[in-house]
Design a protein around this nucleic acid. Structure first.
Length: 290
DNA sequence: GCATATGTTATGAA
DNA sequence: TTTCATAACATATG
């Protein structure tokens, strides 16, 4: 699932499920998803803290915490608590469940959170108000969870380019024209631009009418402008959908067809391996010599 | 058994 | 130094 729009949806899940709530229990069902931290240390560092406003950069989700006690004013000065850095690989998800919902076999880490600290009588707006459980679920375990202080967070984010949804036109230009690789490889390189994955890159290039193998540095200013605009349009729709939607009017809606045809011109779609990933494009809408 | 899959990183070669 | 392909990671599906 996870590219920028999916991770943005997970950020919203985290915010609505756990923000402002005390972390009552951390249950690591599979320590194989933890990186650089033991299950014991994760529990010790997090239990009793409170989730604050989560952030996203590219495909990284940052679950920030503070002390979750009456010292909250002071804790802000002290820099708050540690941050759980989540990466979802190809198959990760974040879900909000009731603590007594039967666990899924791929639920790897469970965070049980208490009632909202602003909710003094313990009855939430929905009348439920009880504990909730945030679940990190992942089939393939290609990535996982890190626990980081501010330095650790910076060390990870330092290797990321600007967020694809936040980057402005100037920075986009700088980043693209400074690369010698093919445009698809450049767009999906997280150290250049953070957030675009395989589906999004193909979708955006198809919309912009650019062949994925064009050298990024060979794009004209007008082509970069179209690419930027179509990237933002595609991201905006995908964020509202919570994923890159497999609509029939989109290229993504035809990836799995056996005899896939371009939804715009009907031409048979071409497939190849570019940047090490399965790539789909329309030879008519995306000529190599555009 | 084979190939494929929304991701990242290490490695060796060009 | 940069870029590229490939394998590896763990698991499921066709």
């Amino acid at each position: 699932m996870p590219e920028l729009p999916d991770v943005e949806a997970f950020r919203e899940v985290l915010a609505s499920c756990a923000k402002g709530r005390r972390i009552e229990r951390v249950d690591v069902r599979d320590p194989g998803v933890l990186h650089g931290v033991s299950a014991r240390k994760l529990r010790r560092e997090l239990e009793g803290r409170r989730f604050t406003e989560p952030e996203r950069h590219g495909k990284w989700l940052l679950a920030r915490t503070d002390w979750g006690s009456p010292l909250l004013e002071r804790s802000r000065e002290l820099g708050g608590g540690p941050t759980v850095m989540l990466h979802f690989g190809m198959t990760g998800q974040l879900l909000c469940c009731a603590p007594d919902d039967a666990p899924h076999p791929h639920d790897r880490v469970l965070f049980t959170v208490g009632r909202d600290s602003a909710d003094r009588d313990g009855v939430g707006r929905d009348g439920v108000g009880g504990d909730r459980q945030l679940r990190y679920r992942d089939q393939r375990k290609l990535q996982g969870l890190w626990l980081a202080d501010d330095t650790g967070v910076a060390r990870i984010l330092d290797r990321q380019g600007p967020d694809a949804m936040a980057v402005d036109r100037d920075a986009f230009d700088t980043v693209l024209s400074g690369r010698r690789g093919r445009v698809k490889a450049v767009l999906t390189d997280q150290s250049v631009l953070a957030g675009l994955g395989n589906l999004l890159a193909d979708e955006i290039l198809w919309r912009a009418g650019l062949h994925p193998a064009i050298p990024a540095a060979a794009l004209t200013d007008a082509q970069r402008g179209r690419l930027y605009k179509d990237m933002r349009r595609t991201l905006r729709s995908s964020i509202s959908a919570g994923c890159v939607p497999p609509r029939r009017s989109w290229l993504t809606g035809h990836r799995d067809d056996s005899d896939a045809a371009c939804p715009r011109c009907g031409e048979p779609l071409r497939r190849d391996r570019i940047g090490g990933r399965g790539t789909v494009w329309c030879p008519r809408c995306q000529p190599i010599a555009a």
